[in-house]
């Protein structure tokens, strides 16, 4: 390992440590804000270290630099504007929107990886398949969840005849395309089927769930995005993406359960109810 690699890896290790400490500080209202700032500082360091890697490699094409700079500037500006301007009451749907674009970014990293090899072997590695699958489900699912809270999409459970059959078809399409890609027998078509079916599945998963359960669903999709980011980390061979993604995937899952418990709802009832297994009636809590 060269001295340069060593320094970058040490920075990544510090970044991962600060993410863990930052989340841990969120356990108490007194330290929560400090935790978020620590996490933000770690994020800045991690992105800066990665930028140094790009400069050091010196193989990035000028147009790629331009695309990167323009995209980052546009995204930062939009994120900052939305986060500053939005009303306090509209924050959950904004978090869902940010979660959607995060999942979308993770999925696109998988797409990019696939396009690099598309002319050669007709297949994709397990991390790439999972990255695109989970990332696409999160992208469309989070957009629907945000739409429901914002009132763009009807917030009541959207149920129609054949919805369960449609979901089953989408699951079969995702499974079939994944198997083709993993065994090296799939090409661009299988990859497209995978992505489109996953996008459809995100919609068909969230649409039948009522607006009152959306915070729990957003938290679950947040955990999904974490997992997708970890898969992108495997595809790129980058440890900090793996660590941070797994951390969010696991803590997001626990948080989802805590939120469901606090709302006196069962997580399986919310998700299964979404698939039309009889959760249209409100659940009777102990306190009425």
């Amino acid at each position: 390992m060269s001295a340069f690699d060593l320094v970058i890896r040490l920075v990544y290790l510090a970044v991962a440590t600060c993410f863990v400490l930052g989340l841990h500080l969120m356990n108490s209202p007194v330290t929560a804000r400090r935790g978020n700032l620590l996490s933000a500082a770690a994020m800045a360091a991690g992105v800066a270290a990665t930028a140094v890697v790009l400069v050091h490699a010196a193989t990035v094409r000028p147009w790629a630099w331009a695309a990167l700079a323009a995209g980052a500037a546009l995204g930062s500006g939009a994120g900052l504007l939305l986060a500053r301007r939005v009303r306090m009451t509209a924050m959950p749907q904004l978090v869902s929107l940010f979660n959607a674009v995060g999942g979308g970014a993770a999925a696109l990293i998988g797409v990019h990886d696939f396009t690099l090899h598309v002319s050669g072997t007709h297949g994709a590695s397990l991390p790439v398949v999972l990255d695109v699958l989970i990332g696409a489900v999160t992208f469309s699912g989070s957009l629907v969840a945000a739409g429901k809270l914002q009132g763009v999409v009807p917030s009541h459970p959207i149920l129609f005849p054949g919805a369960r059959a449609l979901t089953a078809v989408l699951v079969l399409a995702m499974a079939g395309a994944s198997i083709l890609l993993l065994t090296g027998n799939g090409g661009l078509a299988a990859f497209a089927v995978l992505a489109v079916a996953a996008l459809g599945f995100g919609v068909s998963m969230v649409a039948p769930i009522g607006g009152a359960d959306m915070p729990v669903v957003i938290s679950l999709l947040n955990a999904f995005t974490g997992t997708a980011v970890a898969m992108a980390g495997f595809a790129l061979g980058n440890g900090v993406l793996i660590t941070a993604g797994a951390l969010v995937g696991a803590s997001g899952t626990i948080l989802t359960k805590l939120m469901a418990d606090a709302m006196n709802r069962s997580l399986t009832a919310i998700i299964a109810g979404g698939f039309g297994t009889g959760d249209d009636k409100p659940i009777e809590g102990p306190a009425g």
């Binding site: 995204g75 930062s76 939009a78 674009v101």
Partner: peptide, 11 residues
Amino acid sequence: TAAFAAMNVVG
């Protein structure tokens, strides 16, 4: 990808 990810981070 950069636009999506930057929006996620900053926002």
